[in-house]
Nucleic acid binder design. Structure first.
Lengths: 111, 111
DNA sequence: CACAGTACTGCTCATTGCGCAGTAGTGCAC
DNA sequence: GTGCACTACTGCGCAATGAGCAGTACTGTG
């Protein structure tokens, strides 16, 4: 199975969760996601997701200079983003439970 | 959040799980998935997935007549399919755990 | 015979993550 | 001081996959 397909639709949620922790900029969000265990996320995917979430009105954005490279575009959750995070978390949990039940049901039969 | 995006990559796994239970034909697999809680799966998606899994060599196929409609194309897991089910289940579980941890970490901070 | 229910196929589209190239700033090695 | 590594972001085009929708076809019922 391909992990990149599993990310579909979930990357939004992961990015929102990471940003809820603390505002962050793209490059940093990538690192935090990788540290969390999502080893395979590509940077372009994260930048794209950030842009999409921002366009959807879930994020605020501000640019700060950096001493160790080019400027950084920080993103943070606004009310809409927190609401989205909340509802997406529920959707995801429900979905994960459904899948877990489906897979467990199979094992019971096999046992 | 859109559940159809969450299905990406997972529908294969769900179909394999359902078929591991018992051989089935497309129309029936759709019903079983819906009964399991995956309400939004479209029939075309399932038929497409079955064809893909068959093309990938994970399924066997045989056609049986039916008394209540057109013939039915049954699918069943072969060794390759069961191996795929096994490994995909692990991949999915690991991924789900990672996401759960990411979301839980957020809540701890928020608390 | 029209129509609903069953069962499958094929075409096209939308979404979304990825690969890759390009731009640009800072600092270090040589 | 030129090249190179690291930081940081953008944009273009591609691939995978689920969905929408139309079409085909068989059975049974009114």
């Amino acid at each position: 199975m391909d992990t990149t397909q599993l990310l579909k639709g979930v990357l939004d949620l992961a990015v929102l969760a990471v940003l809820d922790d603390e505002d962050g900029y793209g490059y940093d969000v990538v690192r935090r996601l990788r540290a969390a265990g999502l080893d395979d996320v590509a940077d372009a995917s994260v930048y794209g997701t950030l842009r999409r979430l921002f366009a959807a009105g879930h994020l605020t954005s501000y640019v700060l200079p950096s001493v160790e490279g080019p400027h950084r575009k920080y993103y943070g959750l606004n009310a809409s983003g927190r609401a989205e995070l909340e509802s997406s978390t529920k959707t995801w949990s429900g979905f994960a439970d459904t899948m877990a039940a489906l897979l467990a049901a199979r094992k019971e039969v096999a046992a």
